[in-house]
Computed example of a mutant assay.
Amino acid sequence: MAEKVGRDTRIRRGESRRQQVLDAAAQCFRRSGFRGASMSEISSLAGMSTGHIYHYFKSKEAIVEAIVARDIDQGMASIDEIKEVSDIGQSLVDRMAEGMLDRDKVSAPALPLEIMSAAARNPAVADPVMGCRERILGKIQEVVEEGLRQGTIPRDMPVRALCSLLCVLYDGISVQKAVFPPQEVDVIRPLLPLLMAGLLGLPMPRPALETVARTGALAGDAKDMS
């Protein structure tokens, strides 16, 4: 019994230190970029030796893989919750729009933006990023297919293409949040639920239509373009 308790304690301590490294690395990558952040910088912020970090991760690329996997696991848990509701279509619109436009997370996209940039140059980063992307696409596809069976997503279109388009939309807004001030994201806030509802073939959500009518978002855009 005592041996099991000791083993469980060591496992928890090891996982805690592993998360400590990931948190420190994420902060360093946001601040210095993937190429600029050194293992010594990460170890200093994590409060442990570089050798200790190598006990958990063999390279910076392995750290990136773990960061992406952790974020994907959190996202997949949130998507799983959508499958339990009675109106999957509307819940998908609400959850994704909320996640895309959350101003409390306005600094968070800087990290995935840096990781995607590193993936474009480094195959050792690209491979795990693509693997995680496939996982999240598969989970979204499960939700969309369940919505089609449920009848709350009426549009008959290639499911894979729809899920990829939703991910592209999410990524694009993440870039917007990482680069531009929050008010630039707020400009699209009234229109995003309408766009997503249109993609899924859902009725236009009345609150979003009322917001657009009240703010004159569409009229203002049309005037600017004329």
Rank of each mutant, 00 (worst) to 15 (best):
P112C: 10
R135N: 08
G36E: 05
A208N: 05
E146N: 03
I11T: 09
G99S: 03
L218P: 01
T215A: 12
V187E: 13
L166E: 06
R35E: 14
P190G: 12
P181A: 14
R7L: 11
T50L: 00
G138V: 07
V106D: 12
P154E: 12
V185G: 10
S44A: 15
A66G: 02
Q20W: 00
F180G: 10
V64H: 01
G51L: 10
A178Q: 04
R95G: 04
A97V: 15
L45I: 13
M204N: 07
L166Q: 05
L148W: 01
R12N: 11
R206Y: 02
M39N: 05
P128K: 06
P128M: 08
Q176H: 09
D127L: 15
R35Q: 09
V179L: 15
L192P: 03
P205K: 09
I79V: 14
V159P: 08
A25C: 09
P181R: 10
A108K: 09
M1Q: 06
M1P: 04
A69S: 12
M1Y: 00
L194H: 04
L165N: 08
D87S: 04
G131H: 04
P158K: 10
L202Q: 07
A178T: 06
S40R: 11
I173K: 02
R103C: 06
M116R: 08
A124Q: 05
I42Y: 00
S164Q: 11
Q176V: 14
F34R: 07
H55D: 09
Q20I: 05
L148I: 15
R95S: 14
L162C: 11
K177F: 03
V21D: 01
M196P: 04
G131I: 12
L165D: 07
S40N: 10
S117C: 06
S44P: 01
L113R: 07
M1D: 06
L209H: 02
F180M: 15
C132A: 15
F180A: 15
R31W: 02
R103K: 09
S86P: 01
C167E: 10
K83V: 10
L166H: 01
G47K: 10
M76A: 10
M225W: 07
R7F: 03
L202K: 08
K177W: 00
K105V: 06
R214Q: 13
D186Y: 01
F34L: 13
A77K: 08
R70N: 11
P154H: 07
G201W: 07
M76K: 06
K177N: 12
A110W: 00
M96P: 00
P193I: 15
G51Q: 06
A97M: 07
D102I: 05
L200P: 04
V179A: 14
S174N: 11
V168Y: 04
I11R: 13
D102H: 01
G220S: 12
K83N: 06
R13E: 13
E98Y: 01
T215F: 03
A26Y: 00
D224L: 15
R13L: 14
E146K: 12
R149I: 02
F57L: 04
S49P: 01
M96N: 09
V129S: 02
E142H: 04
P123S: 12
G36T: 08
V144P: 03
Q27M: 12
R18L: 03
G75E: 05
P193L: 14
P158V: 13
V159S: 13
R12V: 11
E142G: 07
Y56H: 14
L148P: 00
G201V: 11
V179I: 15
A126T: 03
P190Y: 08
G138P: 03
